[in-house]
C-alpha cells in the first residue's frame, strides 16, 4: 500500500479518496485534500519528519501522520 511515507524524495502521488477519514482536519485545511498532488520534497536527517508540497503548501509532517494518508502514485 502506498502512502505519503513510502514516496521517494522528488516523487509525486495523488491523495486517494479513501484517505479522507485519516487526514487530520488541520492538514485538510492546509490543502492536503483527496485528489491533490503531493510531492515528497525532503526527509529530515533522522528519517522523520517529512517535508511535503501539496496544493502550493510546503509542510513538514511526522511520518506517523504521513503513513496514514494513502496515495496513488503518478504513472511512470
Amino acid at each position: 500500500m502506498s502512502t505519503i511515507a513510502t514516496l521517494n524524495i522528488g516523487e509525486i502521488g495523488y491523495i486517494s479518496e479513501e484517505s479522507l477519514d485519516f487526514i487530520p482536519l488541520k492538514l485538510l485545511e492546509m490543502g492536503c485534500l483527496p485528489g491533490a498532488e503531493v510531492e515528497l520534497v525532503q526527509i529530515a536527517p533522522l528519517k522523520d519528519p517529512l517535508y511535503i508540497c501539496v496544493n502550493g503548501s510546503h509542510l513538514a509532517i511526522r511520518k506517523e501522520t504521513a503513513s496514514k494518508i494513502q496515495i496513488l502514485k503518478a504513472s511512470n
Binding site: 487530520p24 488541520k26 492538514l27 492546509m30 519528519p49 517535508y51 503548501s57 510546503h58 509542510l59 513538514a60 509532517i61 511526522r62 501522520t65
Partner: peptide, 9 residues
C-alpha cells in the same frame, strides 16, 4: 495526542 505540522515558508 501529539499532532505536528509546520509550514516551511
Amino acid at each position: 495526542k501529539s499532532f505536528f505540522v509546520v509550514e516551511m515558508p
